[in-house]
């Protein structure tokens, strides 16, 4: 089913991407082309086929449950856009006057 302009706009908010109306229009065409491309696969009758989530069996054993060292705090903060007192700095969660719905998005 083809995506509407409103759905593409909503998808932009869900994926946390600020898109202009022009970009939304372009993406609507491109995403619908991709959906059309995968359509013939969607139509296959696979009701009795088990899904495969991972290509190889037996790769999820994990290591022994023993603590190992991790990166030092200064290494973790080395690439932070902004940090202070050993912590990441972010802007305030909600701008003054913003409603709960717009802050939370529609995800």
């Amino acid at each position: 089913m083809a995506l509407t302009t409103a759905e593409v706009k909503d998808l932009g908010l869900t994926t946390r991407l600020q898109l202009s109306d022009k970009e939304i229009a372009g993406l609507q065409v491109e995403l619908n082309n991709i959906l059309e491309y995968v359509e013939h696969m969607k139509q296959l009758d696979l009701i009795d086929v088990e899904p495969t989530a991972h290509p190889v069996d037996g790769t999820d054993g994990g290591r022994a449950d023993v603590p190992i060292g991790s990166l030092a705090r200064d290494m973790l903060l080395m690439n932070a856009p902004e940090s202070r007192d050993g912590a990441f700095v972010v802007p305030q969660i909600k701008a003054p006057g913003m409603s709960d719905a717009s802050a939370g998005g529609s995800a």
Partner: peptide
């Protein structure tokens, strides 16, 4: 201006 604005613009 706030965390949502940071996400939306940084990623775009």
């Amino acid at each position: 201006t706030d965390i949502l604005d940071l996400y939306l613009r940084s990623r775009k």
